[in-house]
Nucleic acid binder design. Structure first.
Lengths: 245, 245
DNA sequence: CGATATCTTGAGGAATCTCAATACTAGTGG
DNA sequence: CCACTAGTATTGAGATTCCTCAAGATATCG
């Protein structure tokens, strides 16, 4: 029995060694879903895995774009800076998300870890070769790019036209929906990012984020819990606020 | 002589009839560049051309996404609305631009003409078939989606972190660069959109757009000309303002 | 040339920002 | 285990940008 388990464990480990991608926990979420075993094997051949502590840079804006990444755990933020230091976070990425779309010669933004993060790293040249070889992969990546684009358009509406309260509620709903998609808790949601990060994502200041959260807390639609968790007490109310109803 | 010209004209017309795409003036700008004659012919087979007057809707947010479009002349705006009517324009498209990226079941935004516009219409099912058949086309479309994504990220930085003056200057530079790419005048630039459209693109009000333009005019960095043209008198100055220097 | 829409300008107000002080939290070392 | 520190979050007061409302000027179109 103990032996069986040890064997099973060894088999899994050796399988992972031969093809870590086939044992990947987030495969269904990402570009790697819908790949055939052969494609997956080829992808595994070019994949390097990487662990990064929180608060570290994965790559910087303007650096040569040598690689793409897939987040397998943790949270990463992407941001652009103005010369005087004003910052706009263009997205938070979690397990299954792809980093490096907008494949250009240089990275158009900085990627920095919000929590400890595990990544798969794909050298760019090699993955471009695979894309030519496997249209299915390209198709999948194109589809991801389209989703990103739709999300970016939603974010433009938020940044250009929503009030602080609407922005915060939209943000909480986004986190909730994404947690659901990953099989995590949708309702007490885990919010790993700082007020400053939230502010730079929503086009606000930390003070306004803090005040608005206090206001939502006071009016009873959310409550703050231990460990950076937020309970969405009145989901319908939050939804109405987010949409400006 | 007159005969020769008539002949030439007739030949061109008949060529266009056989394969309008190969005679297309904006082909080099768009997804249709880098296609082989065979691919171009197949694309032409599924293409319908369409002319729309200014101020008309090409498609509406939420409608089934039956087709993609390529703008061949004129300007189109894409926008999303909040329930109370607040509007965010997510992009202005011109000759060579592709409409309908973010290929989902329904359109995520409304597309409306700003000026009289000519479009190529590609039924969605048919173009999806072509994409499977011709990886080159898919590659090209993927690359366009990536450019859009990079532009969307720039726009998020603008909406979230730039002042009204910086927004207007960024917008003028964007128009200038795009005009240049299309072989139009980069310096007295043609600005076909209304103040309200500019406002909804930049996350401002018409009044603020108007005031800011007046201010730029008064300080001598731009001047307004006949026919909705704007001269960028101090290009370096405009660039510095746009980047917040 | 009149009607209508668009643009500009003004005055006052509101949302959000800035600056500043205080409270909280988590990690560190005694 | 507690005190200390550094970072982060909250709260307050005042300033500022931009918005709202309103009126007048200009442009557009039949």
């Amino acid at each position: 029995m103990a032996q069986t388990e040890a064997e099973r464990s060894r088999d899994k480990a050796s399988l992972a060694e031969i093809n870590p991608c086939s044992a990947c926990a987030v495969r269904t979420l990402t570009v790697c879903s819908a790949l055939e075993p052969e494609e997956l094997r080829r992808l595994a051949d070019i994949t390097q895995t990487q662990r990064i502590e929180s608060g570290h840079t994965v790559f910087g804006e303007g650096e040569p774009a040598d690689a793409l990444f897939n987040v397998t755990s943790g949270t990463v933020k992407l941001y652009k800076l103005l010369p005087d230091g004003r910052r706009q976070i263009t997205g938070f990425l979690g397990a299954g998300d792809f980093v490096g779309l907008a494949l250009n010669e240089t990275y158009a933004y900085t990627a920095e870890t919000v929590t400890a993060t595990a990544l798969c790293r794909f050298p760019r040249r090699k993955i471009e070769g695979l894309l030519d070889e496997f249209p299915r992969m390209q198709r999948r990546l194109f589809s991801l790019a389209n989703n990103e684009l739709a999300a970016a358009q939603d974010q433009m509406l938020l940044l250009g036209r929503k009030t602080a309260k609407e922005k915060i509620c939209s943000f909480l709903l986004l986190l909730s929906q994404r947690a659901g998609r990953r099989g995590h808790s949708e309702n007490p949601i885990f919010v790993p990012m700082s007020r400053a990060d939230i502010a730079d994502y929503l086009g606000l200041t930390t003070e306004t984020v803090s005040r608005t959260i206090t206001q939502l807390k006071t009016s009873g639609v959310i409550s703050l819990m231990e460990g950076n968790k937020v309970r969405l007490c009145d989901l319908d109310g939050i939804y109405d606020i987010a949409e400006g109803c």
